[in-house]
Write a protein that binds this DNA or RNA. Structure first.
Lengths: 236, 236
DNA sequence: TAGATTGTTAATCGATTAACAATC
DNA sequence: TAGATTGTTAATCGATTAACAATC
């Protein structure tokens, strides 16, 4: 009787889509990257404590995180790298191609378009846009810089999921609005500007400048006393 | 008597360097950027609830965060933008010049070197390095690409504080080690790779690919039900 | 003055860590 | 078997939020 009820609850949970906590989603790409490395180097198993050591976490956190997925760990061995990689890839959608556009064909925008890393990880750059007439039509790898007037049509036609914002700060919000109006479902903002989006759109900020500012703060305030995050503790 | 004791404690706290919690340090650059905007647009005061609305926080969080600094808020008005900007700038070191080098003169590295945003925020690119003989000596703005053999000397000579890593993933750790050996105190890692550093060195990861993967996850798992973070609540 | 806003304390919430029975 | 490692529950820790007296 009791068992029956428990099973019912479990099924309900599953059908309601597990929805991982933010910190877990944040760490999944790290797990995936590390597990890929391990698999490439021939390792068939990896334990929570190995992963913890490599990523600067505790083994407890690793096990908690992985238990959110449909786990596949085995006592005394750890997790099978092959299975784990599959699982993480599927959860993150890393086994599919995601179509993106870049808005802003300055140094950063063109660099990202040409950078092999995106395509390698399944992010296909389908277009690059700018509003400077002087550069429209210029080649960027296999693409040509398109005018902003074509953004809407292009996003809809190619069913673009994600927009990368690489325009000057002052233009970031307007570009975001236009990308959203065109139908993208997520934005990666590389401009040094606050962008507001409606609830239905996902937003990540690259925070390059902010990261440098944080570094500058940390450097200046780390004079001898190591007030470090807890995760340092476990490493032996 | 009691008051005497309290003052003693306060002084002790101050001399021991306040050392802000991570989430606060993370938000300081946002406050600074927004307060600058406000000041540029002529606003003399800003309230915690305005800042909260603009940055997607609660007013409580804003007041807590700012109270870590040597606050300067005034009842019924809020915070004076001028004073607040000064304070945030000083804490983040945004009023000084920080010397950085870039290692990896590929698309991303050269883009960052040429990108005006860094210098604008006080991060002066003093050198760009690569190990590809084919490009060494090439101009990148006012700089020339230098060979890796010069990295150590250059970092020491110019007293470089921060290194930007823009090499392929496979080379990231070695580059980090060399930068650290040369004496940088902080690293911004733009490679898609896990980098380990000793305790005394600060590390920030740009996580561009990881951010895209997170976006892909969020997009696929946001079908109608808005399990959003708490901070959304307050906005009216 | 009345009312808005701060600075701060206490309550809540959620994430991390510890601990351990189950298991291979 | 003995011992290492998982999955999970409970304890701890820390960050966010609520609430409110003090204040301008």
């Amino acid at each position: 009787m009791v068992q029956h009820k428990e099973m019912g609850e479990k099924l309900l949970m599953l059908s309601a889509e597990p929805k991982l906590p933010r910190p877990v989603v944040y760490r999944l790409p790290q797990y995936l990257a590390r597990v890929r490395e391990l698999r490439d180097s021939g390792a068939e198993w990896v334990s929570s404590s190995e992963l913890a050591r490599d990523l600067g976490l505790t083994s407890s956190t690793v096990r908690q995180d992985l238990s959110h997925l449909q786990v596949c760990g085995v006592s005394r061995r750890g997790y099978p790298t092959r299975k784990l990689e599959q699982l993480l890839s599927r959860v993150l959608g890393a086994n599919r191609v995601h179509r993106v556009v870049i808005v802003g064909a300055g140094y950063l925008g063109t660099a990202l378009a040409l950078h092999g890393g995106l395509a390698e990880q399944g992010f296909q750059v389908c277009g690059i846009f700018d509003d400077d007439p002087a550069i429209i039509g210029d080649r960027v790898g296999p693409l040509r810089i398109q005018p902003m007037t074509e953004l809407n049509k292009s996003v809809k036609e190619h069913r673009i999921e994600i927009g990368l914002i690489t325009v000057p700060a002052a233009a970031a919000q307007e570009v975001a609005d236009r990308l959203i109006a065109a139908g993208v479902r997520g934005l990666l903002n590389l401009a040094y500007a606050q962008v507001r989006v409606p609830e239905r759109v996902a937003l990540m900020d690259a925070r390059l400048i902010a990261n440098l500012q944080q570094l500058a703060y940390i450097i200046r305030n780390r004079n001898g006393d190591p007030v470090r995050s807890r995760r340092e503790k476990e490493s032996t």
